[in-house]
Nucleic acid binder design. Structure first.
Lengths: 350, 350
DNA sequence: GTGAAAGCGCTAACAT
DNA sequence: ATGTTAGCGCTTTCAC
């Protein structure tokens, strides 16, 4: 044992002294600047090892301020949902390529948390921010934008402020999912949707509505719910709907959390093999359920990657006009969505 | 529009000047120190608002160094797995109570990433680190520990270094799960385990072994696999095992990822209702599968919470001896684990 | 209760 | 190719 037991951390100055060079030289070595003699590099390395030196990136950041980016922030809704987790992973991948650290936090659909965490991340001087917004007013970001901090919105567009955005093709996805059910003969299709007035929720409902209209099917509010939060909510809702006089022959669920509840509810009613189901947004094990659940899959990995790449372009000085990218969805037939409507005496066009 | 279009961020000095006070007074306001006249507080607030000032926590951290903690690091394996996601959430909750930011990253079972990310987080001067280690040698942390940085290990104990640790009761959990199968008459029980020599994997196997020994059942390596990584690996493995001359009547799977593969494999063989299955570690929708999957549930939320709480105690100067906490597991019978063994002419003790 | 001066650990800008 | 000086934005220390 040589060193002192629990003393102050060594600084760049300590390393410089021991190596017999200037602090700046040590700095150059740590930033891999090419203009240092190999001999000195070695000396520095040895001295640093001996002192167990780790450079202080906080101090480095402070002085550099404006140079190479070091951190980006990521605000998602809830890592426990595979959609958010997947975004996190893909953002992390991109950030890593740039040698940048990600600060990620969950918002849990709270507009208040959105503001708080944004503020904290700005105070930490992240070099940019990726946000899946919880609230409906992002005007509080305008000042920051003017100060040059780049923001990219994922999954949901910003409101009252302009910024790059990457969205799922919600309306078309929804339209395709519902149309898929119609093609299997269904004309009475329930809609199970989440609370919330954010764009994706609205667009998914619009996709549903338009698909029905295309097929000249009336929209019946008796089999439409747009006020659901939890899996349990959805379970109860579908049970109620199925218990009415004229129950639907198919269900379109607009969120993966709700889809799980619908599966449970249909199961409880014993109609999971007769009532068709298509869910928006894929989920793990959907293919292992019986019947396996047909979904309109989003592509969260692409949403995260595209968003992160755009953010880094902005950080590196891209001043092109703000834009929105749409990531397509994919219908994955697995069984539940291919259950045909029961034959009915009349109707069935063609 | 008043302010300049995209100028430098205002500093504390700018606010001080505009408010007609000293920088220190602004600092006091921002740190909610009680010894500032209300009048001055108001002046500062107004000036800050006008300039759209956000204090720079990076600079604050630098000078403060040693004061109130501001950041902790969290290294988990993969947020996409509900076990990791749940740890992340509970750590975040605790950290928030202390007003501390969490820096979380995924290791993907890479010992190399473990070292890299540890190094980055130390360079960022986090105030403490929570680690689900990927590698089997954490001796590289010894120097850091000596410098006073606290570490707490989650889910897996550290090697070649001493630190606080929070673990699942792997061996007992596994023992209970396997015993549960034995109680349902099974004497031929396959073991599906993951690659990796880390403690939990070993202990889960030990629990299996000991349970068999208690029941005087021989351990048969023909129905034991400990080299599996993916869901697909597990699926293939169980299909192979079931296809042998004397297939097992029950399966114990030691990891939730593998359990999903086993379910798939049993399904493929059409034996999901005759071969019993108990999985270690719960997973979403386990209860919606048919039959629903009996599991030995871990409690990742508690692991994360307890670990984070211990870390904050250490950060705040707790110098008690290093210790290990064991978080109990819970057997959740759902159906797949309660399938009885087929009657056999002889055997069946009692 | 408030302020002035010094300094946290590093890097930019300029020498040399 | 290396060193010097100044200063990033804040907080500590100590004076008033």
């Amino acid at each position: 044992m040589v060193g002192p037991e629990s003393t102050k951390r060594p600084t760049m100055g300590d390393v410089a002294k021991l190596a017999g060079v200037s602090r700046k030289t040590v700095s150059r070595v740590y930033n891999s600047e090419p203009t240092v003699a190999e001999e000195l590099v070695a000396k520095v390395r040895i001295a640093a090892d001996q002192l167990n030196y780790k450079m202080n990136l906080v101090a480095s950041d402070l002085r550099r301020s404006g140079g190479r980016p070091s951190t980006i922030g990521l605000l998602i809704q809830d890592v426990s949902n595979e959609f958010s987790a997947s975004i996190f992973r893909s953002v992390e991948d991109v950030a890593e390529q740039f040698g940048v650290t990600v600060l990620a936090s969950n918002l849990d659909e709270s507009a208040e948390r959105e503001r708080e965490l944004t503020s904290i991340l700005i105070a930490r001087r992240v070099d940019g921010l990726l946000i899946v917004p919880a609230g409906l007013d992002q005007s509080y970001l305008a000042n920051e934008q003017r100060s040059g901090m780049p923001f990219v919105f994922l999954d949901r567009p910003p409101h009252l402020v302009l910024a790059d955005t990457v969205l799922s093709d919600n309306e078309n996805g929804s339209f395709n999912g519902v149309t898929h059910l119609i093609e299997h003969g269904h004309r009475r299709i329930a809609f199970i949707g989440e609370t919330g007035t954010h764009e994706p929720a609205r667009q998914r409902f619009d996709g549903y509505r338009v698909a029905l209209q295309h097929a000249t099917i009336p929209v019946d509010s008796n089999i439409i719910r747009q006020d659901l939060q939890s899996e349990t909510d959805a379970e109860r809702a579908i049970i109620e709907i199925m218990a009415t006089n004229s129950p639907p022959t198919a269900v379109f669920s607009a969120h993966n959390r709700l889809t799980k509840g619908v599966v449970k509810g249909l199961r409880t009613m014993g109609v999971e093999r007769t009532v068709a189901l298509v869910g928006f947004d894929d989920f793990e094990l959907a293919y292992l359920l019986q019947p396996a659940v047909t979904v309109v899959a989003q592509d969260p990995a692409t949403i995260g990657r595209v968003g992160a790449e755009k953010l880094f372009k902005r950080i590196h000085g891209d001043h092109s006009p703000v834009g929105t990218q749409i990531v397509p969805t994919t219908l994955i037939p697995r069984g539940s969505g291919e259950i045909s409507a029961p034959r009915r005496p009349s109707s069935v066009a063609r």
